[in-house]
Simulated assay, not measured.
Amino acid sequence: MDPTSVLARLGMLAEPPTLSPEEIFPEGANVEFVTVAGERHIALRVWERGVGETRSCGTGVCAAAWVAMVRDGAAASTSYVVDVPGGRLRVTRRDDGELLLTGPAVLGVRGSVTI
């Protein structure tokens, strides 16, 4: 099944996901919905606490890629492609164990505040 259609079945993420037991995260939590899209390739959508669904989340993308890398027994210097509604990203596990996130950066919202 196409990973995009799997994530589309979630419908609109208009309400915070239900967390159980609720008392563990009394203020909510970021929740990533992840599916395998291919070899070293995942896709995800994210609900960010206090914001709602976002087009991407660097922390969530890296966390999901890291879990996939551990699941697959991936060696250092391995890269995974991660598709999010905002575009395609790449997460590389560096030799020192750190993760490197690369991809396009696009300004999604601009605003100003008068105090």
Rank of each mutant, 00 (worst) to 15 (best):
V91E: 09
E23F: 14
L89S: 08
V113A: 12
A43L: 12
P26S: 12
R55A: 09
L89T: 05
V36M: 14
F33V: 04
V81S: 11
Y80C: 04
R45G: 01
C62W: 01
E23R: 15
R49I: 02
V51N: 03
D83I: 06
T114S: 13
V106A: 15
C62V: 04
A14N: 04
G38H: 00
V113N: 03
E15L: 08
G60N: 06
V81W: 05
S79N: 05
T18N: 05
M69Q: 11
G73E: 05
S56H: 08
A75D: 07
V67M: 07
E15S: 07
P26M: 12
V70A: 13
A8H: 08
D72R: 11
E27G: 10
P21G: 10
A65R: 03
G11P: 08
G52R: 01
R9G: 13
G60D: 00
L7F: 06
A14R: 01
G103A: 10
G11F: 14
V109C: 14
E22M: 12
W66N: 09
I115P: 14
G38T: 02
S77D: 15
L100P: 00
E53M: 05
E39A: 09
R94P: 01
E53T: 07
V82W: 01
G111C: 04
G86L: 05
T59F: 02
G87I: 06
L89G: 03
E48R: 02
A105M: 12
E48W: 11
T59E: 00
R45E: 00
H41N: 06
N30I: 02
P16T: 00
L13M: 14
G86K: 10
R110I: 07
E48S: 00
D96M: 06
L44V: 03
E23W: 14
P85Y: 06
C62D: 03
A43T: 06
G111S: 12
V67R: 14
I42C: 10
L10W: 11
R94A: 07
V36N: 09
R45Y: 04
V31F: 00
T102N: 07
R49P: 08
G50P: 15
R90Y: 05
G58H: 02
P21K: 01
G97Q: 12
C62F: 03
T18Q: 10
D95K: 06
L101A: 14
S77P: 04
D2G: 09
R71N: 06
S79M: 11
F25G: 02
A37S: 13
W47A: 00
L19Q: 10
R93Q: 13
V109N: 13
P85T: 01
D2R: 14
G38I: 02
T114V: 15
G60L: 03
L7D: 04
V109W: 14
M69R: 05
T92R: 15
D96N: 09
S77M: 15
G111D: 09
V36H: 07
P104E: 15
V67P: 01
W47T: 02
S20H: 13
P3W: 10
V106L: 15
R110A: 12
L89E: 14
D95P: 01
F33Q: 01
A29E: 04
